[in-house]
Computed example of a mutant assay.
Amino acid sequence: MSDSATTPGRLPHEKGFHISWDQLHRDSRALAWRLDGQGPDEGGWRAVVAITRGGMAPAMIVARELDIRTVDTISVMSYHSGGGAADQRREAQVLKSPDKELMGDGDGILIIDDLVDSGKTLELVREIYPKAHFATVYAKPQGEPMVDTFITGVSQDTWIFFPWDMALQYVEPYRGKD
């Protein structure tokens, strides 16, 4: 079975990039450090807006590191037909917007997500807030043009396993039971 983020015939875990909570925390802090002093207001940022749901943990860490107290969310849903392959994606829709007074055209606002993949979500949000600064922790080549700042690039066919999607479980020893 194939997936949109993998090559045909390859299972998602065959080219997987596993992110632990510790790694996500380190990479999100690195993102904050890269963004520090880069805002339009004497280097500062007015607010952080997380793209839900994946952007919430990185946005919280960035807001903490940069001492930004105003945090909001934007929720975007992409609808799929068929099995959800990239070529079957339909238009994205904003389900929940941040405060309009706060946002304006996005000037001084950091919009944070965990990953930019195809770039469709960020493209929609960028149309709404053209002056916002878009930052992700991870980026795939197809989506890179939609992001202003990111920490780690991964190939388009890499499947990223985020810690909120994983669970710890017992694994049999390689040589069998003792």
Rank of each mutant, 00 (worst) to 15 (best):
L124F: 04
W33D: 01
R34S: 02
I128H: 07
Y129G: 01
A135Q: 02
D114W: 08
R90Y: 11
R53I: 04
D117A: 06
G143P: 00
D87L: 13
S81D: 12
A47Q: 01
L122M: 10
D41Q: 14
G82T: 10
V49F: 04
I19D: 05
D87S: 14
I109G: 10
M103D: 03
S28P: 04
G143W: 03
W33E: 00
P145G: 05
D148T: 01
D114I: 07
H80W: 09
V62G: 01
L124C: 07
I74G: 05
G43M: 03
S2F: 15
G16K: 10
A167S: 13
P12D: 03
I68D: 06
R89A: 14
M1T: 07
D107E: 14
R46W: 04
A139D: 01
Y79H: 12
V154G: 07
S118K: 14
L115K: 07
V76C: 11
Q169T: 12
H25T: 12
I19R: 02
W21Y: 06
D87E: 14
P141Y: 07
G37P: 01
I19V: 12
L35E: 01
T136W: 01
I109L: 11
T52Q: 15
W45E: 01
K140V: 02
D99F: 10
H133L: 11
H25M: 14
R29Y: 05
T121H: 04
R46L: 13
W33T: 00
H25L: 13
E91H: 15
G108I: 06
V71H: 04
V94H: 09
W164C: 05
A86R: 11
A86I: 12
A92P: 14
S28T: 00
A132G: 00
G44P: 04
A57R: 08
S28F: 00
V154E: 06
E91K: 11
F150E: 01
H133R: 07
W45L: 08
F162T: 11
Q156K: 08
A63P: 07
D148N: 02
L66I: 05
I151Q: 00
G84H: 09
R46P: 02
F150R: 03
G143R: 02
T70E: 08
A135I: 00
E144R: 13
A92L: 08
G44Q: 13
D3H: 15
D22W: 05
S4E: 09
I111W: 05
I112S: 10
I109E: 04
A5M: 11
P58W: 01
R64A: 14
T158S: 09
T152Y: 01
P98D: 13
A57V: 13
R10M: 12
K140N: 00
L102W: 08
W45Q: 04
Y174A: 13
D113H: 08
D67P: 06
D41W: 10
D105V: 09
E123D: 15
I61N: 04
